[in-house]
Computed example of a mutant assay.
Amino acid sequence: MSDTTAHVKKPGWFTVHVMNRSVAWLTRRGISVWGSRVLAVRGRKSGEWRTTPVNVLTHDGDRYLVAPRGHVQWTRNMRAVGGGELHLGKHVEPFTATEVADDAKADVLRAYLKRWKAEVGVFFAGVGPDSTDEELRAVAHKHPVFRITAAPNA
């Protein structure tokens, strides 16, 4: 598992107050922006639902959540509870999550950056979709990745 004390690059004011809120507002109304969903995960201490907008990546038949900003609260909660819900409008999809080992992240990170580099590239310290596996593995510990699977009886 990744070091949860790794440095987190916090998003700027515009991202937090304009972009995240706009994407979340649209997603809550059923409009997906490039794969956006509202992630709901129970707090590891409070047990209360916490939400944040995320991009769901489909790669080689599996679906993933990538944390471009690093080891943030939703990743810590996901590790503790092992799943959550993805919301798109009124549709709610419960899921389970398995964290991907750092050595196995290169292809997923490459696919994620290919799709969303313009949005999240600043958080990857110069690494992009054309980077080598070695370069991607060098930053993998900074970016948690979870493979998600629809929960039974969902």
Rank of each mutant, 00 (worst) to 15 (best):
A24P: 10
A24K: 14
W25M: 13
W25I: 01
L26N: 09
T27F: 04
T27G: 01
G30W: 03
G30P: 02
G30E: 11
I31M: 10
S32R: 13
S32W: 03
V33S: 10
W34M: 14
V38F: 00
R42A: 12
R42K: 15
R42C: 02
G43D: 11
R44N: 10
K45Y: 08
K45F: 06
S46H: 12
S46A: 05
S46D: 11
G47F: 07
E48M: 10
R50S: 10
T51Q: 15
T52Q: 12
P53W: 05
V54Q: 06
V54A: 05
V56P: 04
V56F: 06
T58R: 14
T58V: 12
T58Y: 00
D60E: 15
D60S: 12
Y64T: 04
A67W: 00
G70V: 06
H71Q: 14
V72P: 13
V72R: 06
W74D: 08
T75R: 04
T75I: 01
T75M: 02
R76H: 14
N77Y: 00
M78T: 14
M78E: 07
M78L: 15
R79W: 07
A80L: 03
V81C: 07
V81M: 06
V81A: 00
E85G: 01
L86V: 09
L86P: 08
L86R: 07
H87I: 09
G89V: 06
K90Q: 12
H91N: 12
V92W: 04
E93M: 14
E93C: 07
P94K: 08
F95D: 11
A97C: 07
T98G: 04
T98R: 15
V100T: 13
D102W: 00
A104G: 00
D107W: 01
D107A: 15
